[in-house]
């Protein structure tokens, strides 16, 4: 899918209807405009304001200047860690999902018979609710009773502690992400099937091998889709919350009774403490809501970079009437 911002030209005789249309447009767009103001414009401004305050929901926000930002940059032991963890997922999990989806899509294009059965099977995991899928993985990778270590044990391998080991927790979540790559695969599949066949035929006649064909025909044809998927993938990964939250609390399995236990979010050793997880913890468990807003503003800046990049690319698809 690409951003197609063009729209069909309007026939000249119909132009005078436009004036009347303004009322219609307002009627049709009315709810959206309200939604834009209430759930986008206002909260955005408010977030920026709160980020300069101390706010705990119980008493009104009080202005503290840059204190929250200073704490984020220099004092918070977890802010950079959570950012690093989220970037790890952006750098490793997101590309792993794209590459595996592309390779499997490519395989499906090649297979003629039974393709639709494979397609359904490969797509199925992406439908699994994230909470359910994460619990399933936490169970399968359970160091004591899980199937994975049982299998490794048969080959004489002493399996690691997986989600309870800081070195393996993120890779397990990466595996979970790759397992659910079906949504991306389907998009790539559509794009792959759109690559004109004669290009391959011509290349075949010139003696290009499969790798060369992929490099010089498939990739260029796919690049708009790849770009779009990559950017939305980055923004999606910046929000990575559910899987990390569920996996860490299951792995920690700490009792809630009595103080002194490590907070379960991000367990083990903060290895799965993603940025949104820390924001949630600080805002809605520790009630540093002003600080959570400062984290929100920083997240906004990061995601805006990617959004603007996407919008600029989409400008290329803008039709002639977009200049108006």
């Amino acid at each position: 899918m690409t951003l197609t911002l063009t729209s069909p030209p309007v026939a000249a005789p119909l132009r005078k209807r436009r004036r009347r249309q303004h009322g219609t447009v307002l009627l049709l767009m009315g709810p959206w405009i309200l939604g834009f103001l209430i759930f986008f414009a206002y909260p955005l401004v408010a977030t920026v304001w709160y980020s300069f305050t101390r706010f705990d929901l119980l008493s009104p926000p009080s202005f503290v200047g840059l204190r929250n930002y200073r704490y984020f940059l220099f004092e918070d032991p977890n802010s950079w860690k959570s950012l690093r963890n989220t970037l790890w997922f952006v750098i490793f999990m997101m590309p792993a999902r794209l590459i595996s989806a592309l390779l499997i899509g490519q395989l499906l294009v090649k297979i003629r018979r039974g393709g639709s059965i494979y397609r359904t099977i490969f797509f199925l995991p992406s439908l699994a609710p994230p909470v359910a899928a994460t619990i399933a993985f936490a169970f399968l990778f359970n160091p004591g009773t899980g199937a994975v270590n049982a299998l490794l044990g048969r080959f004489g391998i002493d399996g690691p502690l997986w989600l309870s080991d800081p070195a393996y927790a993120k890779p397990v979540l990466l595996a979970l992400g790759v397992w659910g790559m079906g949504d991306v695969m389907v998009i790539f599949l559509a794009a792959l099937l759109d690559v004109p066949n004669d290009q391959y035929e011509a290349a075949g006649l010139d003696g290009a091998n499969a790798v060369q064909q992929f490099r010089y025909i498939t990739l260029p044809n796919l690049s708009p889709v790849l770009l779009f998927t990559a950017i939305t993938g980055v923004i999606q990964t910046l929000q990575y919350f559910t899987q990390a939250a569920v996996a860490s609390s299951l792995a920690a399995g700490v009792a809630t009774t009595g103080g002194g236990s490590a907070s379960s979010l991000g367990y083990p050793d903060g290895a799965t403490l993603t940025y949104p997880l820390w924001l949630y913890q600080m805002g809605f468990k520790n009630f540093y809501l002003g600080y959570a807003c400062a984290m929100g503003v920083i997240l906004l800046v990061i995601s805006l970079v990617f959004t603007i990049f996407l919008l600029r690319r989409s400008a290329a698809f803008l039709g002639p009437d977009a200049a108006r």
């Binding site: 759930f39 986008f40 206002y42 909260p43 955005l44 408010a46 977030t47 709160y50 706010f55 939305t232 923004i235 910046l238 929000q239 919350f241 949104p276 924001l279 949630y280 805002g283 809501l289 959570a292 807003c293 984290m295 929100g296 503003v297 997240l299 906004l300 995601s303 990617f306 959004t307 996407l310």
Partner: peptide, 10 residues
């Protein structure tokens, strides 16, 4: 494209 966490507090 806006992550929901950005505006969650307000």
């Amino acid at each position: 494209m806006l992550p929901p966490q950005v505006t969650v507090v307000p």
